[in-house]
């Protein structure tokens, strides 16, 4: 996982700052008299990973829901390709290429991988009442697309429930990419995973970025964020605590912002000890 960041560093430098695909300007959201978010700025360009970090209750979920089209912001502006949008459903966001991979992944455990991959967007052949599933085609495409993400399942008929947590994440990511996602929102993809499985997912975050997608990576783990991120936004109590590109940050600083002053010492201590053992 360490080599991962090294090898992509060069590629990262070459990329010119692109026009943002998705942009939030001063976005805020109130529920009654509770101010969940205020003054959030965010830019996501193609081929960039923007990490949104924050502790539980910081407003990350509300932010994702606004981007995904589940909530409308109560203030500020949401732009896609430079034009303001007001999504009223996730379907509209999806049609603009903004796909969200939620923590529960929207997979059906008892169904085979390829059926899950195409669920809701099945390929069909024939016409009229004889329209039927193009089973061979869907199996082939599902296998190819998973192959592109570097995941090789000899048994594409295996139920998704038989896959590991990381593999399931990758199936959900590959599905979003195949169905035309330009911006991929990953909601805590590593939260429920072990170290090895988290590594698998982080690799595919990188693969998605290199395929030219904008990625919004939501996490509360600064280590995971720093391994793949180009840009970091730390949200705290509904406000932007930090908004900085990778070049202006170190892992320590990121962790500092994440943790806040009081908890810093204890956490830094813990972190250093973890690094000492790990490398």
């Amino acid at each position: 996982m360490v080599t991962l960041t090294d090898t992509t560093e060069a590629a990262r430098e070459e990329r010119a700052p692109s026009e943002p695909v998705l942009e939030l300007r001063g976005v805020g959201k109130t529920f009654g008299n509770i101010r969940a978010l205020s003054g959030i700025d965010l830019k996501v360009g193609a081929g960039e990973v923007t990490c949104i970090l924050g502790d539980n209750g910081a407003g990350k979920s509300t932010l994702i829901k606004i981007i995904a089209g589940l909530h409308a912001p109560t203030s500020g502006e949401y732009r896609v390709d430079g034009e303001p949008v007001a999504f009223t459903s996730p379907r509209q966001a999806l049609d603009r290429g903004i796909a969200t991979v939620y923590q529960d992944l929207a997979l059906v455990p008892l169904m085979p991988v390829w059926r899950n991959f195409f669920l809701g967007s099945e390929i069909r052949t024939g016409f009229g009442p004889f329209r039927m599933l193009d089973v061979a085609g869907m199996r082939r495409v599902a296998e190819e697309e998973l192959g592109k993400m570097g995941i090789d399942l000899p048994d594409i008929d295996a139920p998704v429930g038989n896959l590991s947590g990381g593999q399931r994440q990758v199936v959900a990511i590959a599905r979003a990419v195949y169905f035309g996602a330009r911006v991929l929102i990953l909601d805590e993809p590593t939260a429920a995973l072990g170290v090895k499985q988290s590594g698998v997912v982080l690799k595919y975050v990188n693969a998605a970025r290199d395929a030219g997608l904008g990625v919004i990576f939501i996490t509360h783990n600064p280590h995971h964020a720093f391994m793949v991120g180009d840009h970091f936004v730390v949200v705290k109590l509904g406000r932007t605590e930090l908004d900085a590109p990778r070049s202006e940050l170190t892992l320590e600083e990121l962790t500092h912002h994440m943790a806040g002053g009081a908890e810093l010492d204890a956490l830094e201590h813990e972190l250093k000890r973890g690094e000492g053992e790990g490398r």
Partner: peptide, 18 residues
């Protein structure tokens, strides 16, 4: 037929299998 390995993923690296 198609597989473009992700960056940082050496050829020797074992792929995830079921």
């Amino acid at each position: 037929t198609m597989r473009t390995p992700g960056p940082g993923q050496g050829g020797s690296e074992k792929r995830e299998r079921v």
